[in-house]
Write a protein that binds this DNA or RNA. Structure first.
Lengths: 227, 227
DNA sequence: ACCTGAACACCGTTCAAGT
DNA sequence: ACCTGAACACCGTTCAAGT
């Protein structure tokens, strides 16, 4: 009996959530957050806007999905390290590199920190902190310190990419600092003056790593017994 | 000679940047970020949208101005403490409380970390870290660790307020964790299971303070010589 | 079932016209 | 100089109509 029929008698390049998310990622990477519109995606598949809504719930969900996709890729690649602390470093750096490659991911995880993919991160870091002898009662605060730090760096990265797109200057932050200084008494603010100098040649990644070490060290001193 | 004339022969409740910013803050506090539209502000002053553009550059600038206003208030209230570390705590907590009272500020500083008001913060924290014996070469990374942590917490706060407005549940994060757990093998993820329990009664402010201590401790151990 | 594209209800911003 | 409000160029989302 012919009770069933092949489902896809339509065009072979049919839409799907997966293909739409991939197209969204491509648009976001190429032209930034503002370029992601339902109309742009529809145009990419040479169809109407309504077709998109058959496969994704809306723009917000699409952004969530795209972010989850990148984040899952980033954390899936992370292997187990011998030392728990090294595993934590690997997770943090993995997300950092993903945000570096896709700055809009930074904006999204700062906007929606309760994303499922971020909870995976919480688990990855938290479970390894417990291996570092952090007592159960303090695991939550120790984990969230690392995650919040990561969130802050991610947000800053996204902002940097946004500014770099708007105005084509490499050192937007440095110039913001210069402006800050020029409006104030320079002698009264030796730190900012020195900061402006350090800012020119600084490496974001090195700086991010230094922050991880500071926090891990703080956690070890505060909660750890042995090592 | 009558070379000058009183400027304000118009209605006494004339528009001004200051009044517009105040109105924007009121709208943001009452109805959230989405409610801030140029039309809403114009309606508040019973005028046309164009009038607003005579006093502020646009919506982005208005949001920047409103954020700067709140942040300046928050940092201006901070007095000098005996210990440099206490001053740093006061600055961090001052911003935290401001974000707590005005969650949209958290979203804005995460979106534009190069805001002038945030550089003030950088100066406030950085100059005090140098009093904590942090060597000049490492001042930048130590300061940015604290600021990035603050940025992350601020972003999370803003997201929480947004979710609390959308759905009226107190523990959105807890329920997100519950969902996360329900989709996975619970026994394989002891940390998240325990986390869900800790989340119910946790105090955001206490947790934030714990993170500050972790980072300050890490900075002291890593860079400080005496105390 | 899936796609199409016009229509709806918004935005931010601009600008000729008023006072 | 300042204000007014229509007009413009967009959005996300919905929905009747097609295949």
């Amino acid at each position: 009996m012919t009770t069933s029929r092949p489902a896809a008698t339509y065009r072979s390049d049919a839409l799907s959530q997966e293909r739409i998310v991939q197209a969204a990622i491509a648009i976001l990477d190429k032209d930034g957050e503002d370029a992601l519109t339902i109309r742009a995606i529809a145009a990419h598949f040479a169809t109407g806007q309504g077709a998109i809504y058959h496969h994704v719930g809306g723009k917000k969900e699409l952004l969530r999905e795209a972010t989850g996709h990148i984040l899952n890729d980033a954390t899936a690649r992370i292997g187990e390290q011998d030392l728990a602390a090294d595993s934590i470093r690997a997770v943090m750096v993995g997300v950092f590199d993903a945000v570096d490659a896709h700055p809009w991911v930074g904006a999204q995880i700062a906007r929606e920190p309760s994303q499922v993919a971020l909870l995976d991160l919480f688990e990855l870091i938290g479970s390894r902190l417990s291996a570092l002898d952090v007592p159960a009662a303090e695991l939550f605060e120790a984990t969230s310190t690392l995650v919040n730090y990561l969130l802050g760096v991610a947000a800053q990265y996204a902002a940097g990419a946004r500014l770099a797109r708007d105005a084509d200057r490499t050192d937007f932050l440095a110039s913001a600092v210069e402006e800050w200084i020029s409006r104030r008494d320079m002698a009264a603010h030796p730190f900012m003056h020195q900061l402006a100098a350090q800012m020119v040649g600084h490496d974001d990644r090195v700086q991010f790593l230094a922050g991880i070490e500071i926090i891990l060290e703080g956690i070890t001193v505060r909660y750890g017994q042995t090592r």
